[in-house]
Design a protein around this nucleic acid. Structure first.
Lengths: 236, 236
DNA sequence: CGTCGATGCGCACACTGTACGCACAGCGGA
DNA sequence: TCCGCTGTGCGTACAGTGTGCGCATCGACG
């Protein structure tokens, strides 16, 4: 009576193992977003999933492996436009760079975790990102080796900016104040520190009243434009 | 029965507190260089100084504060050439960028720690570095605001490259193998991961037999040249 | 029904950062 | 000479960490 078919045979191996790698990683991202990088402990993550700490080890070998998975997960939020017209490469690269930066700003804890992984570059999302950006620079006209260098250059710039910004945003989040308030509170210390450094002090007084978030945006786009200028000039 | 003698009485002079902040930071750098970032614990650092773990807290408020001091310390190893002729700006910037990179490669643990500090930018060595680079771009001809952006751009690029390289070198050091061996051992996994990504796979097969260290050098200088090209083109 | 493999979890261990309080060395004043 | 006082080192202790080990459970299959 029971006909063995694909649908009946193993309806679901185990209805829902109640704890799956996907779910663990997703919850880890949520925990990191909510409470910062020092809150990512196996016990707290287990508690969020109504599970014991050691239960997670059935699906994840290490805490380090969990970190690798988490990093690859947020890399998945980045999108790279696919292009066919070589003339579109610059706007596509710009869009991709902004996508990376906004991902880092959404998850400032990446500042701490990005430096720890090293091998996460085998993750599927990182591979996909690299592959698409490689394709982008190839259709732009870069030869194979230069396309690789171009990809590394723009990613290094974006990650460098992102790490610095994310580190600042993390301490900002920990302080619990608004950015203007924290800047104002830090001002005496900054002035004290810059007494012996005339260029820094001049920089400080010149831009005392500008909105810091807007200044960060402007600095990022300025640098990105210069980097892309340099790459464009190197196109054959 | 215990007679107080000259040998037991004044065990240590007050002149040299036997534990000073300078010494602690220097030993922390040595410990990090020797055993990596996970080995920097207060107990191990104390043991290296023939002191108890909690003794360090007389000279350092937190472990985080120690990290800030350590980061500023290695920033002190970077030198920025001072220039008077505006034509020299590019070679000076290049030299400074290479100095930063070689510092990071000497101390690969900076990959992990740089993302944690955020506020270490008040440290004297970081201030000195920023001030000198600001001066460099000013004498190059950049107006005040653009000089700041230029400084941020090249530092972001250098730090971005450095973080990636340092993360790789850290795992390399942990593995205890030579770079060629580790690359060879990882090759099956890399090929497995890149099956679905044609551009990555082509990149992989094309540069299978190149020396990785040399490839990193070349990639760094290529990107740095492009960044400086872009900045040079923006000079008024 | 029995067997089995996969899964969750309690316990335990080594190890972490660091608060607290005591011991003591040298100094300035009585 | 003695007495605080302050600055320094350290022993103890506590809460919290990652994780190895072994047991309990449970669905699936013979």
């Amino acid at each position: 009576m029971e006909i063995p078919s694909v649908w009946t045979r193993t309806r679901r191996q185990r209805d829902q193992p109640a704890l799956t790698r996907q779910q663990i990683v997703a919850e880890a991202v949520a925990l990191l977003d909510a409470d910062g990088v020092e809150a990512l402990t196996m016990r707290k993550l287990g508690a969020r999933l109504d599970a014991g700490a050691t239960s997670l080890y059935r699906h994840v070998a290490n805490r380090d492996e969990l970190v690798e998975l988490v990093v690859d997960e947020v890399y998945g939020e980045i999108d790279v436009p696919e292009i066919s017209d070589p003339a579109d490469w610059r706007t596509a690269a710009t869009r991709c760079a902004h996508s990376v930066r906004s991902m880092i700003l959404r998850h400032p804890w990446t500042a701490t975790l990005l430096g720890q992984v090293g091998l996460a570059y085998l993750g599927p999302n990182v591979m996909r990102l690299s592959d698409r950006m490689l394709a982008l620079f190839r259709t732009a006209g870069f030869p194979a080796d230069k396309a690789n260098h171009a990809l590394s250059t723009v990613m290094a710039y974006v990650i460098g900016v992102g790490i610095s910004e994310a580190a600042w945003l993390s301490t900002l989040a920990r302080s619990g104040r608004t950015e203007q308030d924290l800047v104002a509170d830090l001002r005496p210390a900054v002035e004290q520190a810059s007494t012996e450094y005339p260029h820094m002090r001049q920089q400080l007084t010149a831009y005392a009243d500008t909105d810091p978030a807007h200044a960060r945006d402007e600095s990022f786009t300025y640098g990105l434009d210069r980097v892309l200028d340099g790459l464009a000039a190197a196109l054959p």
